Simulated assay, not measured.
Amino acid sequence: MADIADFANDLVQQRLDQALAVRAAQLSTTTLHSLMFCDECDEPIPEARRLAQPGCTHCVDCQSADDLRASRYAR
Rank of each mutant, 00 (worst) to 15 (best):
M1D: 04
A2H: 01
A2S: 03
D3P: 00
D3N: 07
D3F: 02
A5C: 00
D6A: 03
A8P: 00
D10T: 07
D10P: 00
D10R: 10
V12T: 14
V12A: 14
V12N: 10
Q13E: 15
Q13W: 08
Q13C: 09
Q14I: 07
Q14A: 15
R15F: 13
L16A: 13
L16K: 15
L16R: 14
Q18Y: 10
A19L: 15
A19V: 14
A19Y: 13
L20G: 07
L20I: 07
A21D: 11
A21F: 05
A21V: 03
A21K: 10
V22L: 14
A24Q: 14
A25T: 06
Q26W: 04
L27H: 04
L27S: 02
L27D: 06
S28H: 09
T29W: 01
T31Q: 11
L32C: 00
L32D: 00
L32G: 00
H33N: 08
S34Y: 05
L35T: 08
L35Y: 08
L35N: 10
M36T: 11
F37I: 05
F37Y: 13
D39E: 12
C41R: 02
C41G: 01
D42G: 01
E43Q: 09
E43S: 07
E43R: 09
P44Q: 02
P44M: 03
I45E: 03
I45M: 05
P46V: 07
P46K: 05
E47Q: 05
A48S: 06
R49F: 02
R49A: 05
R49W: 04
R50F: 02
R50M: 06
R50G: 01
R50S: 03
L51N: 02
A52P: 00
A52C: 01
A52I: 01
A52V: 00
Q53M: 06
Q53Y: 04
P54Q: 01
P54F: 01
C56Q: 03
C56T: 14
C56P: 01
C56H: 02
C56S: 06
C56N: 03
C59L: 10
D61R: 12
D61N: 11
C62T: 11
C62A: 10
C62Q: 07
S64D: 13
A65I: 10
D66C: 09
D66Q: 13
D66A: 14
D66N: 12
D67T: 09
D67G: 06
D67P: 06
D67S: 09
D67W: 08
L68S: 13
L68A: 14
R69C: 12
R69F: 15
R69A: 15
A70F: 12
S71R: 14
S71E: 14
R72F: 15
R72P: 09
Y73W: 12
A74R: 15
A74L: 15
A74C: 15
A74Q: 15
R75P: 11
